Simulated assay, not measured.
Amino acid sequence: MHKYFRKFIVPAIAAIATLTPVYALGDPIIGIWKTEPDRKNLVSDIKITACGDKFCGQILSAYDASGKAVQTPNIGKKLFWDVGSQGGGKYGGGEFWVPLVDVDAVPQMTLKGDTLMVKGCEHHICAHQTWTRE
């Protein structure tokens, strides 16, 4: 069994480890984030995960002003993708979908502790929110 382990299992583990870079798996941006209320006064939970060597975010749920869960057609959709770490708590690149106006924007994110400053710009028009870790 020792030879089998060294011959087959160790190379398999090494191959799996190279599929997702280690730095992305332990990155502090990964997790569940609560948005600020949008123009419809809804708050959403966004799940940020590693997508290869970049990051993506998906809308998990939405809540009205009283905290009651609401169903929207955006739940389950990707909010951003191909966002990369730029070091020093800064993230950018990729694309950000703005559901309220159905526009793609260039995301810029800054992580400070349990706060994520999220900014999206389309040409010279920018919008921003501060998200908090769940």
Rank of each mutant, 00 (worst) to 15 (best):
M1P: 04
K3L: 05
K3D: 14
Y4E: 07
Y4M: 09
I9C: 02
I9Y: 03
P11H: 04
A12K: 01
A14G: 03
A14C: 01
A15M: 07
I16G: 00
I16S: 01
A17S: 07
T18F: 09
T18C: 04
T20E: 10
Y23F: 10
Y23E: 12
G26T: 07
G26D: 09
D27W: 13
D27C: 06
D27E: 12
D27H: 11
I29M: 11
G31Y: 09
K34E: 06
T35V: 12
T35Q: 09
T35I: 07
R39F: 02
R39V: 05
N41G: 01
V43P: 08
D45Y: 11
I46G: 11
K47N: 11
K47L: 15
A50M: 08
A50V: 00
G52S: 07
D53A: 10
D53K: 02
C56N: 14
C56R: 11
G57M: 09
Q58C: 06
I59S: 13
A62F: 09
Y63M: 12
D64E: 12
G67Q: 02
G67R: 06
V70H: 05
V70M: 10
T72N: 07
P73I: 02
N74S: 12
N74C: 03
I75M: 08
K78R: 06
K78H: 10
L79Y: 05
L79T: 15
W81L: 00
D82I: 07
G84Q: 04
S85F: 00
G87F: 08
G87W: 14
G88E: 15
G89V: 03
G89S: 06
Y91A: 11
G92H: 08
G94K: 03
G94I: 14
F96P: 00
W97D: 00
V98Y: 15
P99Q: 13
P99A: 12
P99L: 12
P99N: 12
V101S: 09
V101C: 08
V103W: 03
D104N: 15
A105S: 13
V106T: 14
V106N: 08
Q108G: 13
M109V: 01
G113Y: 07
D114Y: 02
T115W: 07
L116Y: 02
V118L: 14
V118K: 01
G120T: 02
C121V: 04
C121T: 10
H123E: 13
C126I: 05
H128R: 15
Q129N: 07
T130I: 12
